[in-house]
Design a protein around this nucleic acid. Structure first.
Lengths: 211, 211
DNA sequence: GAGACTATCTATAAGGG
DNA sequence: TCCCTTATAGATAGTCT
């Protein structure tokens, strides 16, 4: 029978409501994450269920976006382009290091999970779902990948350090366009390094809970 | 010709990005409002565009939901095990996808900058500082790395999909700690393996590029 | 930028295991 | 509770205005 049209009004059947809430919440968060990726925007979503449970999605994280939202018209230096540029610049290297450190973590985690899976397959052959990925990108490759990522991290760090030097021609030539974004609308930009730092901290952007 | 499928990755054509942002933002807000009506929930959405413009949706209003959200995370009980457990529920397929998509973007960015640098070296030999990194991890390797990351992304996605399913034997046998978090009551402590948490909790700070 | 138009693509309502 | 399938309602990419 497939999908039927429904009226957009309060669902009264509790069981039905739970199913719809779960599906549509995850659909909403997926749409938000796509919007983040496609358009390079920052999004925070907070949902309170009727039971009072909270679900949230945030990229990079909910708190930093709330900070920006609350501070957007009250920040003391919000109209000073210099502070915006400086804050962004200072955040850059730390952010890069953080990001790349996390890549390494995840590659490492993935590798360990591969190990676990290998053991698992011996116990229960029906768990075939991991086989294709492992065969496609084996543990050895993952280790090589991890090593390559470590090299990449070093390279990017060096690269960033050089870019941090304002006397570099490269900075003014290639990085100017990004700064323009911040300089064009100072009142809505990042208003202080503390807010940038908040964004740099790793956080929990996506909340799963039970209704 | 109608709608075409698009890859979920950063839209580079500015004009195109603007149109997509506008359409999808309104679609997101519409979905949110439907969720409010259908399920009787309270939702706040905050979006910062790349230009720093802010868009928000709130039912009943953004501020009251932010208040509730902040009261919850800064309140007297915010550091008790229950809240920590809640915080650690954040593993999600979407988040992993988003993070890994960004890794791919950044590897791609790095590759392109390598290209730029190549051109630059021809113009001015004194800009030697990029040479060591490039020779150590060349552009070709970066491209291979990017491809490997794409595979890794698929693996992690599948893996995460399975981890999200508590009925999986793999989960209960090997990753039980993670789901203990989901199922444990507030009074229970947190016991989980650190490497899993590293992956679960990490979230990339948003970056418009390396600068 | 904001609408209008379609052809497609995606999300999801229903139902079942 | 979770997952899967199916049919269909709804969202939207590409284009023009």
């Amino acid at each position: 029978m497939g999908r039927q049209k429904i009226k957009i009004e309060k669902i009264e059947v509790k069981n039905h409501l739970q199913v719809t809430f779960s599906k549509r919440r995850s659909g909403l968060f997926k749409k938000a994450s796509e919007l983040c990726t496609l358009c390079g925007v920052e999004i925070a979503i907070i949902v309170f269920s009727p039971a009072g449970k909270v679900f949230s999605f945030g990229h990079p994280n909910v708190e930093s976006i709330i900070d920006r939202f609350l501070a957007r018209s009250t920040g003391p230096n919000s109209h000073d382009p210099f502070h915006l540029v400086e804050a962004q610049r200072n955040a850059s290297v730390r952010e890069l290091n953080l990001q790349l450190g996390q890549i390494l973590n995840e590659v490492e985690v993935e590798r360990k999970r591969g190990d676990n899976l290998d053991n698992m397959r011996k116990t229960n052959e029906s768990h075939y779902w991991w086989e294709a990925p492992v065969s496609k990108l084996g543990l050895e490759e993952l280790e090589q990948l991890r090593d390559a990522m470590e090299d990449l991290k070093k390279n990017v760090t060096q690269h960033a350090n050089k870019l941090m030097n304002p006397s570099s021609m490269f900075v003014s030539n290639l990085a100017g366009g990004v700064f323009d974004q911040y300089e064009s609308k100072p009142s809505h930009g990042i208003v202080s390094s503390s807010h940038v730092n908040a964004a740099v901290n790793s956080n929990f952007g996506y909340c799963h809970g039970f209704f």
